[in-house]
Each structure stands twice: as structure tokens, then as C-alpha cells.
């Protein structure tokens, strides 16, 4: 049976929910426990998504993260703010998963060792077309050195498909700020990734 159809067993769900609440109410330590759980779930989901899609298909990251959220978090226990915070974590995890995946693919192409998960070739990400994931990752690293918040805005919008309002909620800033940051970050990334 594929990973995506296993129902979430109640234990991680209640644990993720509790950790998420703790973190949202200010306990920073909860995040350290939360990250591996979210990361594991997203990794499993991503693998099943990629298995399901035919080669050449785009990976619906937004769908993936939404599904992970529904699976991991007990909806009766959290309010809408927790959702944005969850996505804040998921964005980082997703970025790491996708970058790892891209690196493995690169290694395979160069005749390197067999990758731990056999993934179909050429899985693109639906949110942004035509850019190399590794280049984006590298550009985001550089952007983070210039402006950490801007890099976070891109991460959230690009790797989880959060809307402006949800991004604002996840970062605790106004929507106007997010709009502004997103606009300039796009210019910066266009510049950084430009193929002339």
C-alpha cells in the first residue's frame, strides 16, 4: 500500500498537534522536536507523490504540504494560526527534501551510487517553472545573507504555495510587508538566476 493512503496513526497526530501548539505559544524547544516529524511525513508523501506521477510530471508541492498538514495535525485541536506556523516549518522541510532529491538525481546522472529512494526522473515543481532547484536553493542562500526575511517569504510562497495573507501570518508581519518583500525578492531572484 502506498504511503499516502496509510491513515495517520493517532500518536504522531496528537504529538504534532501538541508540539505545534507549544511552539506557537512561544516554546522554541518544541520546534526541534517538531521538525523531524514533519520532515519524515513530507518525505514519505513526496516519495509517494513522485511514484504516482508519471515521469515528466510536475510535483504539486502545494497539494503535498496541504495533505501533510491534514494528516499530521488534529484539526479539532488547533486554530487557523497554527496552520500558517505549520506551513512555516513545512516550507523548510520541503526545501531540504527537494534539494536532496535534486542532488541525488545529479549524482545518478554522473554515474554515482544508487540513490536511497528510486525516484522518477525529471520531476518538476509546479510552483515555479523552468528553474533549476539547486540554483534556486543557492540563490536563496545568498538572499538570506542579504535579507533573511525576504528569503523566508520566498521559501514559504515557493515551497508550500502559501498565499500572501498566510505568509504574513506565518512570519508575524503585515500583508503589505509581505507583498513588498515578495516583489523585490522576485526581482532579486530574477537577477540572480538570469540566464543571459
Amino acid at each position: 500500500m502506498a504511503g499516502s493512503v496509510d491513515p495517520p496513526d493517532s500518536h504522531p497526530q496528537s504529538e504534532v498537534t501538541r508540539l505545534l501548539q507549544d511552539w506557537c505559544s512561544g516554546r522554541r524547544a518544541a520546534l526541534d522536536a517538531l521538525m523531524p516529524l514533519v520532515h519524515r511525513e513530507l518525505r514519505q508523501l513526496a516519495a509517494s507523490y513522485m511514484r504516482r506521477e508519471r515521469p515528466g510530471h510536475t510535483l504539486q508541492v502545494t497539494a503535498l504540504v496541504n495533505e501533510a498538514y491534514l494528516k499530521l495535525v488534529d484539526q479539532t485541536q488547533v486554530d487557523w494560526r497554527n496552520r500558517s506556523h505549520f506551513f512555516g516549518i513545512a516550507a523548510q522541510c520541503m526545501r531540504r527534501i527537494l534539494v536532496d532529491h535534486a542532488r541525488q538525481r545529479l549524482a545518478q546522472k554522473r554515474g554515482g551510487a544508487e540513490a536511497p529512494i528510486a525516484l522518477d526522473d525529471t520531476v518538476d515543481i509546479a510552483n515555479v517553472d523552468g528553474f533549476d532547484i539547486l540554483a534556486i536553493d543557492e540563490a536563496l542562500e545568498r538572499l538570506a545573507r542579504l535579507d533573511a526575511r525576504q528569503a523566508r517569504v520566498v521559501e514559504l510562497r515557493y515551497f508550500t504555495g502559501l498565499s500572501i495573507a498566510e505568509t504574513a501570518e506565518a512570519l508575524g508581519v503585515s500583508t503589505a510587508t509581505v507583498k513588498r518583500e515578495w516583489g523585490t525578492a522576485r526581482l532579486w531572484l530574477t537577477h540572480a538566476l538570469a540566464r543571459l
Binding site: 510552483n127 528553474f131 530574477t190 537577477h191 538566476l193 540566464r195
Partner: peptide, 21 residues
């Protein structure tokens, strides 16, 4: 120089599809 590069970039960096739900 920065804006010159942006102008000449073959594709701007942006989200595919509607940016807002």
C-alpha cells in the same frame, strides 16, 4: 547593472498560476 540584468533575463522569477487562491 542589476536592473539591466533583470530586463534581459529570459524569464522572470515568479509563481506559476494565480499567486492568490
Amino acid at each position: 547593472a542589476f536592473l539591466d540584468v533583470v530586463d534581459r533575463a529570459s524569464a522572470p522569477f515568479d509563481l506559476v498560476g494565480p499567486a492568490e487562491p
